[in-house]
Design a protein around this nucleic acid. Structure first.
Lengths: 111, 111
DNA sequence: ACTTATTATCGCAATTTTGCTATACTTGTG
DNA sequence: CACAAGTATAGCAAAATTGCGATAATAAGT
């Protein structure tokens, strides 16, 4: 009969863990989100330019596997310098904003 | 009488150098621009939050000298992860766009 | 089915960014 | 001047990102 108890404990543990890690968790979620966004942005830019990963790689002076890694939505290592390099060869430029958390501004877009 | 010749050569050399380095140069200029923009953005965010460098540093789990470095317009090491960390503790989120080089979209702004 | 092109994944070295301490500089205030 | 708060700079170790080759997986075309 400790099945219920166990279940409750488990929930509690999860709750505590969630509440306790709020700040870090928030940062983490945001990180995941922006990672996926940047990956998608790079993919979109490349597609619009009609380039293969290899072609884009050569344009920015790196290799295909690097581009593939950048377009992986789970990749955590996105950087501004890489974005610069990519937009630069595509005759674009990077724009960076910081908006309120609850703003409905579209996350990643191209003008 | 080879003064003219020399001069012409010099101009040619400069031209060649300029043309030759176009892509890298363009990337370089863009890099400088975005570096200064991000530095300014971080400074603005901190000021609006009414925080000292030390206070912001503690919020994101680093030291004052790091924030100072980030706000230096000549600093070349800006990263998305640092921007995330900063916006996260200020209840904001980062938005990244890529626009046409000649677009008049405002480079860095906050909504 | 067989190439060919394209993309994904792995592993490790090289480079870049960050952490951190110490210290100097600046500004304002008593 | 002395003191305190805030900011800037330097140097080096630690951590994260990138370079890059090899190879697997997937897709596309013949």
């Amino acid at each position: 009969m400790n099945k219920n108890k166990k279940t409750v404990s488990a929930v509690k543990i999860l709750q505590n863990r969630y509440v306790k890690d709020q700040p870090e968790r928030k940062a983490s979620i945001q990180k995941e989100r922006i990672n996926a966004q940047v990956a998608q942005l790079i993919y979109n830019l490349r597609q619009e330019a009609g380039l293969s990963q290899k072609q884009l790689a050569e344009k920015i002076g790196t290799t295909q596997s690097v581009i593939s890694r950048l377009e992986d939505s789970d990749y955590e290592g996105h950087s501004l310098s890489m974005l610069e390099r990519i937009t630069s060869v595509l005759n674009k430029r990077v724009i960076i904003n910081a908006v309120d958390m609850n703003s409905n501004a579209f996350p990643v877009q191209r003008v």
